[in-house]
Each structure stands twice: as structure tokens, then as C-alpha cells.
């Protein structure tokens, strides 16, 4: 649990640091402006140079005398985002069906604004499929694909928490089968693994950068291939000398197994290990000092009699 404590120690300052800073306080300036276009004149025209006010505009008030000086620089024109959206096209309808507030009003009051959300889009553009994330919706209607770097580097291996908590709604951009492309057992539509992965995947399997079993059946996928390629025994005995680089392998294998047991299971069947580690075999106990027999027995008593001829905890 040391890792857990370290994790929390990292988390707290991270959250605090993430809270720092902030966007332009629109509401605090509500009395100064009567129209969004006073600062964002370029948006309806598609002129990115005038999409945000110049820093010198702030200095009119924030000159260090009347108001404290502020350090603010205009945002860079975003463009090329993940949405197929045109401010100018929508602005043509301004005054008829849509205004800035239609999408950006966060509540009552002048300059109480926020970023537009997908729900705002759907208030005018309704899916016939009745749901934003319904499978089969044509994502390209609203979402752009291609060379847009939306996620941070390494997101492919770190997206678990974001997906599990729906901090990012994956289906908001990706069709639902996008998950199945990687998590359904075989490489199919997406190139999740790099080229020649069959030759280079062993270190990934050992270090569990991503768990193989998250997508593949260890038995039916990994073991099946390892058997056919001579890495694993096709019968009860070893067919090759995979561990030949380890001359003292018999004495070392216990530590290797404890450290990365899932790689053992990617070649060996249970019966192979039971030849030594069972009552029917050499009765070498595989249980480590941390093994809680009673706890496991409570969850599944039939598991014990796989190796023990009699239930060792019967009646206890």
C-alpha cells in the first residue's frame, strides 16, 4: 500500500495545482460591455485575428493606477478542432434563430457565459436516433476525424480512469465499436499494436504496460498461439527449451512465477504446475506467506480440492 500512499500524496497537490489560474471573468465585466462583438468581432466574420481582444484593450482600464495591471494575452485562434462547426455559418442566422447566447449563455444575467456543450447543439440539431451517443449515428456530421491531437501523449494506455469515470465521454467522439476494436480480442480495425508486435510483445506482457488479458483470453489466444509456435508445450511435458538462457531455472522459477504469474499461464496449463504443486504430485506447496487460505476457501471451497485430495479446511 506504499504505492497507494504515494499516489494520494501526488494527487492532492496535483488537484490544488490544477485549480490554479482561470478564464477571463466575463461576469465581473458585465457592466462594461453591451455586446459580445465588442471583444469578439472577428468570430462571426471568421477573422481569427479579431476573435479575441488585444492585450492593449485591457490596459485602457488596467493601467496600474485606475485598476491593477493584469497579465493577459489573447488566445491563439483554435481552428482545426474536433468539431465540424462554423461560427460564420451560424452567425448568418443570428437574430433569426440563433444568437451568441443561444449556445454560450450559462444562466440569467449579462455576460454569464460558458463554453457550448453538445446538449446546446442538440437543442437545434436533434438526432433521429434519439441519443447523442447512440450507436450508428454518423459521427462525422459533427465530429472531425484525421490528424487532430486531442488527447495527451500516452492516452492510449492511460485512458482507463477517464473512460471508467466518464470524465471524457468516449462515445461523444468515437463510435461505440471503437472500444471493441481493441478490447474484443483480436486486432481488427485499429492498429493498436505497432507493426511486428508478434515479435516484440514479450516485454509488454511482463511489465503489464497494458494487461494482455484486458482484451485477450490468456488461454484461448495467448496459449493457443504459443503452443502452435513451439513456445509452449502441446502436451503435458515441455516441448522446447524456452528457459534455456536460465541454467538454474528450476531453482529460479518460483520467484519468476510469483513476479509474473500471468506469463506462466500464457503457456502452461494448470495441470503442468500441479504435477509438482499438488497432493497428487510432489506436494510442493506453492502458497506464499501472504496466502490467506481461509479467505479464499470462503469464496470458493472447490478451488482447494483441485490440488488437495481432501478439503484442507473442511470443518474449520
Amino acid at each position: 500500500m506504499r504505492a497507494g500512499c504515494v499516489a494520494l500524496a501526488l494527487l492532492v497537490p496535483g488537484v490544488l495545482a490544477a485549480q490554479a489560474g482561470g478564464a477571463f471573468p466575463h461576469a465581473r465585466h458585465a457592466s462594461l460591455f453591451t455586446s459580445c462583438l465588442e471583444c469578439h468581432a472577428g468570430i462571426p466574420a471568421g477573422d481569427s485575428a479579431r476573435a479575441f481582444p488585444a492585450a492593449s484593450d485591457c490596459l485602457v482600464c488596467h493601467d496600474g493606477a485606475a485598476e491593477k495591471r493584469v497579465d493577459w494575452t489573447p488566445k491563439a485562434a483554435r481552428g482545426g478542432g474536433v468539431l465540424v462547426f462554423s461560427h460564420p455559418a451560424h452567425a448568418k442566422r443570428a437574430g433569426k434563430e440563433a444568437t451568441c447566447e443561444t449556445c454560450h449563455a450559462a444562466g440569467p444575467g449579462a455576460m454569464n457565459v460558458a463554453r457550448a456543450t453538445p446538449e446546446k447543439c442538440l437543442s437545434c440539431h436533434a438526432h433521429q436516433a434519439t441519443a447523442h451517443k447512440a450507436q450508428g449515428n454518423n459521427c462525422a456530421t459533427c465530429h472531425r476525424s484525421g490528424r487532430v491531437r486531442v488527447h495527451q501523449a500516452g492516452f492510449a494506455r492511460s485512458h482507463g480512469a477517464a473512460a471508467a469515470t466518464e470524465a471524457l465521454t468516449c462515445a461523444g467522439c468515437h463510435a461505440r465499436r471503437f472500444c471493441a476494436d481493441c478490447h474484443a480480442g483480436e486486432r481488427n480495425a485499429r492498429r493498436y499494436h505497432p507493426a511486428n508486435f508478434a515479435s516484440r510483445h514479450a516485454p509488454e506482457a511482463y511489465s503489464r504496460d497494458v494487461a494482455c488479458s484486458g482484451c485477450h483470453s490468456t488461454e484461448a489466444f495467448c496459449r493457443d498461439c504459443h503452443r502452435q509456435t513451439g513456445l509452449a508445450a502441446k502436451t503435458g511435458s515441455r516441448s522446447t527449451r524456452y528457459h534455456n538462457a536460465q541454467p538454474r531455472w528450476l531453482l529460479q522459477h518460483g520467484r519468476a512465477a510469483r513476479q509474473e504469474l500471468s506469463t506462466c499461464a500464457s503457456c502452461h496449463q494448470q495441470s503442468y504446475c500441479m504435477a509438482c504443486h499438488s497432493d497428487a504430485g510432489w506436494r510442493v506447496s506453492p502458497h506464499g506467506p501472504t496466502f490467506d487460505a481461509a479467505r479464499m476457501h470462503r469464496r470458493n471451497p472447490t478451488l482447494c480440492v483441485r490440488c488437495h485430495l481432501k478439503d484442507p479446511l473442511a470443518g474449520k
Partner: peptide, 21 residues
Amino acid sequence: EVRHSRPFFELWTIWGAFAPV
């Protein structure tokens, strides 16, 4: 990132009883 990782095995296999670390 800090991480602790230990493999998980369903109880239809004996692997969990091998006390993986």
C-alpha cells in the same frame, strides 16, 4: 504517474493460490 500492479485471476484457476506479488 505512480502505480502498483498485481495480476488478477478468477477462482476457476489455481493461479491465485500461488500468491503472486
